[in-house]
Simulated scan of single mutants.
Amino acid sequence: MVTSRRSIADTSPLTDWFKSSYSGGDQGECLEVARGHAAVPVRDSKAVDGPAVVFSAGGWSSFVNAIKGGALSG
């Protein structure tokens, strides 16, 4: 269950995780997002049992738009 907390220590009960189609394959630098929750849990694809950061739906949308718009860079 995803709550309004900002993180989840154990994500093993959550299902429907997916990686972006923009992920570079097996580079080991991928994030996964779990669908179907009011809040948006995000985890490192190498850490399948957690932890995960939890975004509000609006916060996640803002983050994704900032990445797409080039506002955040590595």
Score class of each variant (00 low, 15 high):
M1A: 05
V2P: 00
V2Q: 02
V2N: 02
V2M: 05
V2E: 02
T3Y: 09
R5C: 02
S7P: 01
I8W: 04
A9S: 12
A9I: 12
D10I: 10
T11M: 01
S12A: 15
S12C: 12
P13E: 13
P13V: 06
L14M: 08
L14V: 12
D16P: 04
W17E: 12
F18E: 12
F18C: 08
S20F: 04
S20V: 01
S21D: 13
S21K: 14
S21F: 07
Y22S: 09
Y22E: 06
S23K: 09
G24P: 01
G24I: 14
D26Y: 03
Q27W: 04
E29D: 15
L31T: 07
L31K: 01
V33Y: 02
A34T: 02
A34R: 05
A34E: 01
G36C: 10
H37M: 07
H37S: 08
H37L: 09
H37W: 14
A38T: 15
A38W: 14
A38Y: 10
A38P: 10
A39I: 08
V40P: 02
V40R: 03
V42F: 04
V42Q: 06
R43N: 00
R43C: 00
R43E: 00
R43I: 00
D44Y: 00
S45I: 09
K46A: 05
K46R: 11
K46D: 03
A47R: 15
A47I: 09
A47K: 15
A47P: 07
V48F: 05
D49C: 08
A52K: 06
A52V: 03
V53C: 01
V53W: 06
S56E: 13
S56P: 10
A57M: 01
A57Q: 02
A57K: 02
G58S: 10
G58I: 10
G58P: 07
G59C: 12
G59F: 05
G59L: 08
W60L: 03
W60H: 07
W60M: 06
W60D: 02
S61M: 06
S61R: 11
S62M: 03
F63V: 06
F63M: 10
F63G: 04
V64L: 14
N65T: 10
A66S: 11
A66E: 06
A66Y: 04
I67K: 04
K68E: 08
K68F: 06
G69E: 13
G70R: 09
G70M: 10
L72V: 15
L72P: 03
S73R: 14
S73I: 03
S73V: 05
S73D: 12
S73A: 09
S73K: 15
G74V: 15
